[in-house]
């Protein structure tokens, strides 16, 4: 067998780490060499990891010092991103990191600075850009079919992730809450499709949580005002009952017309059993695979990044502005002058 040029270490093997691993396993030029997890979780993931022919590592230094590993994929909780990404870049690894880039602008800036001085490849996994309906919407807008973008709406909602009720997700200062962790997908996508920067954000989030026992904001609605005069409405929620499948909606109106898509009504498959009824979206290709294929091509062929670290910084800034507005009750102008998450 030919030598695989990308030796990958996956750092954090929760839901996202496992998803990324499945995608890396499909990249012929890549081999998963190691998976980093905390000692407490190491035993329970060992069999899954061994299926990829990889080993479980509980000491991060071991990955940094492994000269063979040249790609580090950080799928840790957001509050750990900066530390692990900066160390990997400084150790000379290419780095893929889950969104949001971080919880603080200073952290994101430090990560970007570390990347720039490393000469290595760095991408934040804003996977929505790889979902076919979002990608097609972007292409349609870029084709000029819709004229100048004017007003958009995005919805993204589900029940609170069941694996995370007792975890970091539900802690506002660890995940940033729904406006940071979930709405950031749409913040990034809106910037991309409007091809413009956000000037001002106003947001509302209920003071009392719908999800019992968490401190993180679990429902948020935000207005974005773009520099060229476009506006957008963003609704992101973890406050839906568990009977509701993960749902997304998007519409964009421009001077030339309107485009809309709705994963609630466009799913090609439905399943009803005595326990549940669900609509199932089947994608022509797994968006996570496309995302990781893109990053591999960026490393191997220097293909231009679809989503840059600066894009990830800007998306975070919009989300943080929304959190700040929801706490102060005032519209917040960008660029942000101070940190929002304590």
């Amino acid at each position: 067998m030919q030598e695989r040029p990308l030796k990958v270490a996956i750092v954090g093997f929760g839901f996202m780490g496992q998803t990324h691993a499945a995608a890396w396993a499909r990249i012929p030029e890549a081999q998963i060499k190691a998976v980093f997890e905390v000692p407490a979780r190491a035993p329970q993931i060992r069999h899954m990891v061994s299926e990829y022919g990889a080993k479980v590592v509980t000491n991060y230094e071991e990955i940094l010092e492994d000269e063979e590993v040249n790609v580090v994929d950080v799928c840790l909780p957001t509050f750990l991103h900066r530390e692990y990404v900066v160390k990997a870049l400084k150790a000379g690894k290419h780095v893929l990191c889950e969104k949001p880039i971080a919880l603080h602008l200073w952290e994101a800036r430090e990560m970007i600075d570390a990347w720039k001085s490393s000469g290595k490849k760095f991408m934040i996994a804003h996977v929505v850009r790889f979902f076919p309906e979002y990608k097609q919407a972007k292409e349609l807008v870029d084709s000029g079919a819709l004229g100048e973008p004017r007003i958009a709406r995005t919805y993204r909602y589900s029940a609170f992730p069941p694996w995370s009720v007792k975890g970091w997700f539900g802690v506002q200062r660890l995940s940033g809450g729904v406006l940071v962790d979930l709405a950031i997908h749409d913040m990034d996508f809106l910037r991309w499709i409007f091809n413009d920067e956000v000037a001002r954000v106003y947001a509302l989030s209920p003071e009392r949580r719908v999800v019992k026992g968490i401190t993180a904001q679990d429902h948020g609605i935000a207005l974005l005002k773009f520099k060229k005069g476009g506006i957008a409405y963003v609704m992101a929620s973890w406050a839906y009952p568990k009977t509701v499948p993960f749902s997304t909606y998007f519409e964009l109106v421009g001077t030339g017309g309107i485009l809309q898509f709705d994963n609630r009504s466009t799913a090609p498959l439905r399943l009803g059993t005595s326990e549940q009824y669900s609509t199932i979206q089947t994608y022509p290709e797994d968006p996570y695979y496309l995302e990781i294929r893109h990053f591999a091509d960026h490393i191997l062929k220097d293909v231009e990044l679809m989503v840059t670290p600066e894009d990830a910084y800007k998306a975070l800034e919009i989300s943080l502005a929304a959190v700040k507005s929801s706490l102060t009750g005032e519209p917040v102008s960008l660029p942000l002058k101070e940190e929002v998450i304590p």
Binding site: R150, R200, Y202, G229
Partner: peptide, 12 residues
């Protein structure tokens, strides 16, 4: 309390 944003017009 009310807050509103108006967009640039769709129809010129």
């Amino acid at each position: 309390e009310v807050y509103a944003e108006v967009g640039a017009n769709i129809r010129s």
